[in-house]
Design a protein around this nucleic acid. Structure first.
Lengths: 123, 123
DNA sequence: TCGACATTTCGACAGATATCGAATTATAGG
DNA sequence: CCTATAATTCGATATCTGTCGAAATGTCGA
């Protein structure tokens, strides 16, 4: 029950669902997700930690960068099915489509350049 | 996105998940769910309302009693898949099994007798 | 019509959660 | 070694949420 609840709670937030949608098919670093969601990096870090604790997202650290990806085939059934369900629901969703569009633009920038840009523009 | 979030939020509470589990295969009236969950009836009513707004649960009123059942085949795909997912996850769960066991005892009482019993024992 | 009663709604309150900015940690490169 | 920087952790705060009991609503039976 605790595992199940961790998953539903992790998915009970709009920005975390958007993050899951962004990760479909890609591995992304934190600053890329920050760019699309438009939240403070500390906030996004927290969100990703919650998704990770629910085992929906895997983490990999490389140098200064933290990379995130969706859990893969060897995750527990409950986790895998949850991801399949969310992605299917989002496939019919408007906000999901908007985010994916913006993500394409963000993906064109190298992570390094992107992080630099975030440092500059304190808008 | 709003629909999807309504579902994940509805499922992001332990007592609401237990309620969904109880409804598998049955239609139950409010006082039966109250008996198993051990919460104030006003609280359970609120929980069922949240599940209903997410379209996970259908409501039927008959006389003084309110009956609840899981959404059926003509619910939206996202709703149906969510129910399937939760029930599958709960099938492997300990608390789910405990609740189902207690439910059997509660189901042996008629709703009418049950409600009377709740009135008497203000423990 | 009146009283009993199952349910819902309302008001209050405690605890959880999302968010930010500041401080901290860890790492790459000069 | 020292600095810049990506990420995380921490402290504060505002909002949301679960819960209860009291009041309101609607329905049955006398």
């Amino acid at each position: 029950m605790r595992d199940l609840l961790a998953i539903t709670k992790a998915l009970a937030d709009e920005n975390r669902i958007r993050a899951v949608a962004l990760l479909e098919g890609h591995e992304l670093c934190l600053c890329q997700i920050v760019e699309v969601l438009g939240l403070a990096s500390s906030t996004v870090s927290r969100h990703m930690s919650i998704l990770h604790q629910a085992r929906l997202v895997e983490t990999r650290k490389q140098g200064r960068w933290a990379y995130f990806r969706l859990a893969d085939e060897d995750a527990p059934d409950t986790v895998r099915d949850a991801i399949v369900w969310v992605l299917a629901a989002l496939a019919r969703d408007k906000q999901g489509k908007l985010d994916r569009k913006e993500l394409k633009a963000v993906l064109k920038m190298e992570p390094e350049e992107l992080c630099r840009r975030q440092g500059e523009c304190k808008c």
